[in-house]
Amino acid sequence: MSDDYSDDVGAGLKAQPTRYEHVLSVDELPKHDNSYEPRGVQYVDDAGFFIAQTGKVTPPPKQWYESKTIWFNAIVVAVSLATSATPALESFMSAEVYAVIASFVAFVNAVLRLVTGRPIKSGGA
């Protein structure tokens, strides 16, 4: 056999060395051991292969004390308790002032919910 491909490719070209390739079959692919599966989420199918993930990926959860929404609502509760416990402050609060404060609290809560990117950890963990 000749070392040139004059028949197929063109005159004077040298033959490339033969490459041996082995294509893995499905049975030869490595299996993955996912021992960490939070809340019953299954990342592998029955054969041990990764399941295709679709949709939005959820970021890791945060502790409750890292939540701006919870801190804001705690401050609102503390201020409202202080206002109702102090009769001198109650006299300055008309119905209109309460309505403005309630609207402001609702607006800030809505904005904080819009910028929330991480869920809060549930349970004792």
Rank of each mutant, 00 (worst) to 15 (best):
M1L: 11
S2A: 07
S2T: 04
D4M: 05
D4Y: 03
Y5Q: 00
V9D: 00
G12V: 00
L13Q: 05
L13K: 09
K14F: 02
A15C: 09
Q16T: 08
Q16Y: 06
Q16K: 13
Q16D: 07
Q16L: 11
Q16A: 12
Q16P: 01
T18G: 01
T18A: 04
R19N: 09
R19L: 10
R19P: 01
H22L: 15
E28A: 06
L29E: 10
P30H: 09
P30G: 03
P30L: 12
K31Q: 12
K31G: 06
K31H: 07
H32W: 09
D33G: 06
N34T: 15
S35K: 14
Y36R: 10
E37D: 07
P38I: 14
G40N: 03
G40S: 08
G40D: 02
V41C: 08
V44G: 00
V44C: 03
D45V: 15
D46P: 00
D46H: 11
D46E: 13
A47Q: 14
G48R: 05
G48Q: 07
G48V: 10
F49L: 03
F50L: 15
F50N: 11
I51S: 10
I51V: 15
A52P: 00
Q53Y: 06
G55Q: 08
G55K: 04
G55L: 10
K56L: 12
T58Q: 14
P59G: 09
P59M: 12
P60I: 10
K62L: 14
K62E: 04
K62C: 02
Q63P: 02
Q63F: 10
W64D: 05
W64F: 15
W64C: 03
E66H: 14
S67K: 04
S67A: 14
K68C: 11
W71K: 15
F72E: 00
F72V: 02
N73D: 07
N73Q: 15
I75G: 04
I75T: 12
V76R: 01
V77E: 04
S80R: 07
S80N: 09
A82P: 01
A82F: 09
T83Q: 13
T83M: 13
A85D: 04
A85R: 05
A85L: 11
A85F: 08
T86A: 13
A88D: 08
E90S: 12
E90Y: 08
S91H: 09
F92D: 05
F92E: 03
M93Y: 08
A95R: 14
E96T: 10
V97W: 07
Y98T: 09
A99D: 09
I101A: 00
I101P: 00
I101L: 06
S103V: 02
S103G: 10
N109P: 03
V111Y: 07
L112D: 01
L112I: 06
R113A: 15
R113V: 06
R113D: 13
L114A: 02
L114K: 01
V115W: 00
V115Y: 00
T116N: 06
T116Y: 01
R118F: 05
P119E: 04
P119T: 02
P119L: 04
P119S: 03
S122Y: 10
S122C: 06
G124V: 06
